[in-house]
């Protein structure tokens, strides 16, 4: 009992290639296992028992940037860390996305001083900003869903680099 019986013999589905590819990308997005500070603990909570982000096809946190599609910048980025962060971003294969998780990654948060980069968008291009200090796991999941919405609307011609 399911969609098969309602529709009969469904041999061919027509859709655009873009939709199919974007659908596949959203449902198997592998984030990079990359925690910086406090938000990393909430990111772990989002992965753990109560919130379980693997419901959205994100159970695989890859420690290697070469295998990941999504960088969640979880925490404050110091001036010493910024070049490392950029290097990790450059090592990720295209297409790639960035979520700035938390206030520190989005705009510097409470740390308006010499040591912290005031917003990680000065180092890498950010797709989704998640507010909160730290954001609750639900907020992170909402951020991820927002990113999915964005990815679903992406056009191939915009992704091709000149």
């Amino acid at each position: 009992m399911g969609v098969e019986q309602k529709l009969g013999n469904m041999g061919v589905v027509t859709t655009t290639l873009e939709t199919a590819v974007n659908w596949a990308r959203t449902n198997a997005m592998w984030p990079m296992l990359f925690g910086l500070a406090c938000c990393a603990i909430e990111m772990m909570s989002a992965q753990a028992a109560n919130y379980d982000m693997s419901r959205f096809g994100m159970e695989l946190m890859r420690p290697s940037p070469r295998q990941s599609d999504l960088m969640i910048v979880a925490g404050r980025v110091s001036r010493k860390m910024a070049p490392v962060l950029r290097r990790l971003y450059d090592q990720m294969p295209e297409p790639k996305w960035v979520i700035a998780m938390g206030d520190c990654a989005s705009c510097g948060g409470v740390f308006n001083n010499y040591a912290i980069v005031q917003g990680v968008d000065e180092v890498v291009p950010v797709d989704v900003y998640v507010a909160g200090c730290p954001p609750r796991p639900e907020a992170l999941i909402h951020g991820v869903m927002t990113l999915f919405e964005k990815v679903k609307g992406e056009k191939f011609k915009d992704l091709v680099k000149a």
Binding site: C107, G108, N112, N113, A115, G119, D121, E122, V124
Partner: peptide, 22 residues
């Protein structure tokens, strides 16, 4: 201390123009 001016509604665009986005 290295204070950077916070962005609010009234000065959003002004700061946005000179912020070093990547």
């Amino acid at each position: 201390l290295g204070y950077e001016e916070p962005q609010f509604t009234f000065n959003f665009e002004e700061i946005d123009l000179r912020k070093p986005y990547v």
